[in-house]
Amino acid sequence: MASEVHAAEGATGYIIHHLTPLHFGEGFWTLHLDTLFFSAVLGGLFVWFFKTAAEKATSEVPGLVQNFAELLIEFVDNQVKDSFHGHSKLIAPLALTIFCWVFLWNFMDLFPVDIFPLIGSLIGIEYLRVVPSTDLNATFAMSISVFCLIIFYSIKIKGPWGFAKELMFQPFGPWLLPFNLLLKLVEEIAKPISLALRLFGNLYAGELIFILIALLPWYIQPVLSFPWAIFHILIITLQAFIFMVLTVVYLSMAHEDH
């Protein structure tokens, strides 16, 4: 069905169309409106749900909403307690936000690939890419924020000199200072890049496969998209979980004084 609509552009055109964001502006100052819009809406959804639960929070028998919120809170708290041994008011809420927000981003992947672009085209929006995690800007925004926190806590806990010493004198001692520095810098910079690219890569590939399935004849589509969607339920949760756990691990590493 979808392939008929875009028949003129061919399969490649259909794919490119689906992966082109709704953008505004030129050069660096381009804004991906769809990414900004959907991630803000999903963030709002997350905040609204948890705020509702928090307002009604009681230590008596919890309601359905509170129960679910507490389930997530407890899950995140256990993850944080497992890998982070310091005291921080930031890390647990940060981990919760990351897990829920990334999960909601990824969840957009499970909507049929043509639904939102179709609605968009009805109200005059030409391009619409609804999964924020298929936008490098979204994943990098998150991982760079985490990176900033890693640097901030490294300096705060170890002191500027302590952090510099760690960069220069580990792991091979002061005689191999340049190598140490190079190794450490690569190690640090690899953290945000791997975080962002892992999430982006998984979701981009997943979305691409959904689009490819949508190009097939209609009677084959369910056979392929159904198992792929089920598999994707695992993927989206796993990716959100990995992003959260790695953030906690990196931040706990930043807190550890050698």
Binding site: G25, G27, F28, W29, T30, L31, H32, T35, L36, S39, A40, G43, F46, V47, T97, W101, P132, D135, N137, A138, F140, A141, M142, I144, S145
Partner: peptide, 14 residues
């Protein structure tokens, strides 16, 4: 591009 900055602000707020 600048979407990055917008996303970072949203993330920080959340």
């Amino acid at each position: 591009n600048a979407t990055l900055i917008g996303q970072m602000i949203t993330f920080a707020l959340l």
